Simulated scan of single mutants.
Amino acid sequence: MIEAKRTPDERFKDVPDFDFPVRYIDDLPGYEGLRSAYIDAGPADADRVFLCQHGEPSWSFLYRRMIPVFLETGARVICPDFLGFGRSDKPVRQEDYSFDFHRNWLIALVERLDLTNITLVVQDWGGLIGLTLPVAPGFEDRIKRLIVMNTGIGTGASPGPGFMMWKAYAASTPDLPIGALIARGTPHLTPAEIAAYEAPYPDASYKAGAQIFPALVPIVPDMPGAAIGREAVKFWSERWSGPSFMAVGAADPVLGPTQMEALRKQIRGCPDPMIIPDGGHFVQEWGEPIARAAIAAFGGR
């Protein structure tokens, strides 16, 4: 049994502009007893679903500016909180976190909800994991469109010196100042929004996932996740035939235009990106115009 903490609900009572239906599930195969949270908005019988995946150290709150635009199209929107983040339970031991632990969890959630006709919406770790979904058994036909922002596919190479500095900082800082970190590259955040990013973590004992995630990025060829990442690159570059939309926060010091251009070349048919000149790593904070541009590129739905 994995020891985990559960953030008290009252920590989320003052989260602004995030009044979307929250669902919980605690019996996913292999994750019994761990409560997972996800936003589930829009018609349950919609013919399309936007699957929005956050990264490190954020949570589904990051998508609050994009969700309403997706809902306007009549689609369903699912935004999970990875275990260790947001409203989901938080294993307290760093050794309980791994690439496969989170990838298999996401696969199990998609299968439980039986999501099809998926528009994959990814950024940061949401892309590291989410971009490998099409090579999971039975998943290639589930995913029809892609919106990709400031992320990469972990194939066994470092994204660059900016990432290595972040990895070293996270490893040496057990009580990560999460709200301040996100605000550093997102200067327009209000105090209430900064507090919302801190809300999942009453104290440092809830932050094992936030601290360990950078060390799990597959930057060495034999690291867990690297082989599946290389398989995913082959899918996106050789077999992908759906529409793609890319947005890039140009001010991101870790996964900015250079890294994103390398990713764009790995995605068959991906057009030139929408550049957000002042957008930082958490580019969903500029999300409404990104979502509207993506919907327009997809023909209005």
Score class of each variant (00 low, 15 high):
residue 53 Q to R: 11
residue 90 K to P: 09
residue 131 L to P: 02
residue 41 A to T: 07
residue 284 Q to I: 07
residue 193 E to T: 12
residue 49 V to T: 14
residue 183 A to H: 10
residue 138 G to Y: 08
residue 136 A to S: 15
residue 242 G to K: 07
residue 12 F to L: 01
residue 65 R to I: 02
residue 278 D to C: 10
residue 290 I to M: 03
residue 108 A to C: 10
residue 279 G to A: 09
residue 180 A to E: 15
residue 29 P to F: 11
residue 58 S to Y: 02
residue 41 A to Q: 10
residue 47 D to P: 04
residue 55 G to P: 07
residue 283 V to Q: 08
residue 147 I to C: 12
residue 18 F to M: 09
residue 73 T to Q: 07
residue 116 T to S: 14
residue 296 A to S: 13
residue 210 A to V: 00
residue 244 S to I: 00
residue 216 L to A: 07
residue 165 M to E: 15
residue 142 R to A: 12
residue 275 I to Y: 12
residue 217 V to L: 15
residue 251 A to D: 14
residue 290 I to N: 04
residue 96 D to C: 13
residue 42 G to C: 03
residue 278 D to Y: 02
residue 298 F to M: 12
residue 295 I to F: 03
residue 266 Q to W: 06
residue 252 D to I: 13
residue 92 V to P: 09
residue 139 F to G: 11
residue 294 A to K: 11
residue 136 A to W: 00
residue 260 M to H: 06
residue 235 F to W: 12
residue 215 A to R: 05
residue 75 A to C: 08
residue 188 H to D: 13
residue 145 R to H: 08
residue 203 D to C: 12
residue 136 A to Y: 11
residue 61 F to H: 10
residue 187 P to L: 03
residue 245 F to R: 05
residue 235 F to V: 01
residue 59 W to C: 03
residue 178 I to G: 08
residue 199 A to D: 08
residue 44 A to S: 13
residue 163 F to N: 01
residue 127 G to S: 04
residue 143 I to T: 09
residue 78 I to S: 03
residue 201 Y to D: 13
residue 257 P to S: 10
residue 93 R to V: 12
residue 139 F to W: 00
residue 151 T to W: 03
residue 142 R to L: 02
residue 225 G to T: 10
residue 36 S to H: 13
residue 244 S to M: 06
residue 144 K to H: 08
residue 78 I to F: 04
residue 101 F to T: 14
residue 115 L to A: 06
residue 208 A to P: 11
residue 250 A to R: 08
residue 154 G to I: 03
residue 214 P to M: 08
residue 124 D to T: 04
residue 119 T to I: 13
residue 209 G to E: 03
residue 296 A to K: 11
residue 11 R to C: 12
residue 54 H to F: 06
residue 182 I to T: 07
residue 298 F to D: 05
residue 21 P to N: 00
residue 249 G to N: 12
residue 274 M to D: 10
residue 212 I to F: 05
residue 40 D to T: 05
residue 209 G to I: 05
residue 253 P to D: 02
residue 35 R to Q: 15
residue 49 V to I: 13
residue 300 G to T: 02
residue 280 G to V: 04
residue 17 D to F: 02
residue 273 P to G: 13
residue 39 I to F: 10
residue 157 A to M: 11
residue 147 I to L: 14
residue 24 Y to W: 13
